[in-house]
Nucleic acid binder design. Structure first.
Lengths: 215, 215
DNA sequence: TGGAATTATTACTAAATTATTACCGTTAGT
DNA sequence: ACTAACGGTAATAATTTAGTAATAATTCCA
């Protein structure tokens, strides 16, 4: 399970933006839209995006200004300027503000997607999700359980199952849901296999404050 | 002291290329020029560039074809397509060949420079990197491991692998990621080769406070 | 309460994965 | 051309995994 990558789209052209938004979302990114620089800044402070698609010509606060403000405190976020201003000064201005790319309109959505994918290719793996289960910490990406300093590692199956349970902590998860999602079909033999795996997981959870119960 | 970054410029337009070459060289990069794809491939094999500026329309062997051949064995080199073909199919084709950018002509040399600088910014900063692995110091640029005053040197392969692991210390790195990035494809036989290299690296890491584990 | 259905536990096994060592062809430096 | 290092293949070993099977414990109702 990967943390979704958040993209902030700032452009005063609502119509085209909605289209673009849908395109990018279809690729699995989370897209938040802002209509101008001022609104963009507000959204930026709320969602802390991983990438900003930034139009330059905008009322209230233009893209350059917005980028300048953001870059003062955030060197990490990736900024793509999207604009139909194509003159040299502007394009270079974009780079001098530490924009990471400058994409002149009109562009093909696929092209933008390709550029976005390229940026996040390496980041897509390796997220740092953690679940606190009682006094035990479960790290799906490390396939590990840590309790009282002791860390045990889980097999992939065990990790898959425990992740489903951890995501729904407190709530019950249907047997068949687990079977469908992990085994692909809810056959009887798989159900038995699940029992076995649950036993294994329980054995690795000596923490009395956690328990897996069946209802 | 930083390793110079090598750029291979492949374009059949001699006149413009010489101009561009000078521009890029003025920025501190080492630029090697090739007049067509065939020549480009030869130069590629000689100098192993860090980045390739690649024209598409060329006699002998076009840029797409050249990129395809190179990408078969080298996933790491950065490829920028430079071209006046601006139609959609071509631009996307460029990305599908794992080109890292597609820059339509005409462009401003400053803009290209900005894009190049942006790509190597992290490398330029990370010149004399050292990784502290437990009580061992790993210096990728020296291909060396120092533990208790003893320094051992690593082979290129071992350095590449250890660097990937060191960059993600504490986090797991996908086998396939390593294989893709270093070997170029995640075939089974390469996977076995990786096992061997890991064994070699472990042998050079007698420090009990460091370990490479598979999960 | 009794017995069927469900869930738990343990032991066992075949397959897959990872580790280690030995060996070999290629390459670069002398 | 000799040598050493390198990076890989091959053979084999060790470990891990995800099941099955056998058996036990628990739950649920008529």
């Amino acid at each position: 399970m990967m943390k979704t990558i958040k993209i902030l789209l700032v452009d005063d052209d609502l119509k085209n933006s909605m289209l673009l938004k849908r395109f990018v979302e279809a690729e699995g990114y989370e897209v938040v839209y802002a209509n101008n620089g001022k609104e963009g800044l507000e959204m930026y402070n709320v969602i802390h995006p991983d990438l900003i698609l930034l139009d330059i010509n905008m009322p209230e606060l233009d893209g350059f200004e917005m980028a300048r403000i953001i870059r003062k405190n955030d060197k990490r976020v990736i900024i793509f300027f999207l604009t139909d201003r194509t003159d040299k000064v502007d394009r270079l201005h974009g780079f001098s503000l530490k924009g990471n790319d400058y994409i002149p309109k009109p562009f093909y959505p696929e092209e933008l997607i390709a550029k976005i994918n390229e940026r996040f290719e390496s980041l897509i793996v390796n997220q740092d999700v953690e679940y606190q289960l009682g006094d035990t910490v479960f790290r799906p990406n490390l396939s590990s359980l840590t309790y009282k300093g002791e860390t045990h590692s889980l097999s992939v199956r065990q990790t898959e199952i425990l992740q489903m349970l951890a995501e729904n902590i407190g709530k019950p998860v249907e047997r068949d849901t687990i079977l469908e999602k992990i085994w692909g079909d809810a056959s009887y033999s798989n159900s038995l296999a699940l029992n076995v795996q649950i036993t294994y997981i329980r054995r690795l959870l000596p923490d009395p404050s956690v328990s897996i119960t069946s209802i």
